[in-house]
Amino acid sequence: MNRHGVLAIYRFEMARFRRTFWQSLVTPVITTSLYFVVFGAAIGSRMREVDGVPYGAFIVPGLIMLSIFTESLNNASFGIYLPKFTGTIYELLSAPVSALETVLAYVGAAATKSMLLGLVILATSALFVPIQILHPAWMIAFLVLTSATFCLFGFMIGIWATGFEQLQFIPMLVITPLTFLGGAFYSIDMLPPAWRTVSLFNPVVYLISGFRWSFYGTSDVSVELSLAMTLGFFAACLVGVSWIFRTGYRLKS
């Protein structure tokens, strides 16, 4: 294993994060605060409780997931797209680094950033609402799995993208709507039966539900199903990334 190579890429990516430290962390803190002002104070004051959880606290797992999805996709896709864009990818392709090591380094760095961000949002939320974490180990497990899955997905987007527009296409037009419709701010049990059934086709529902269960012990779908779906997405992304490296898709000619 090229330990030095993996560390070099990881440190390089984390250095890029440090360069935009304030932008990376202050923006989500402000956004989270705004969500609490709008959803927690304005709307939440009328909704009181969902599944026995105060509304302000109920939306915390969804808010964290929303940021994790977006940031994981952005971090990982930019991480691999930028070397392609600037041409510095030649160095990575000519280095004695395996596909697994490359993914480990890029996805590891992107997932680290996302998880840090998730924890910052959690800390910010704690300033506004009382938060309870019934299953902390599961909370961490869901956080790590979801971050890694979306970083792998973002990595694939970064490889696939041939321009900045494509880089933004899936996060903005697919993931964000699915997250908003996936129970980030409500329980899907609150929907009419037909829409609830439709929601079950939204994969994000399972991710948010499992994560919320680790906080409050309540969920839209069973936690086993959530875990299975999360692992399934993770495996699907792994297969996708290994295919990219096996074929050299948009990496090697």
Partner: peptide, 16 residues
């Protein structure tokens, strides 16, 4: 955006 030193140190690490 990298410095000369950091980019050269990165290359050394990348190559194991």
């Amino acid at each position: 955006f990298e410095t000369v030193w950091s980019t050269v140190a990165f290359s050394r690490g990348l190559f194991g």
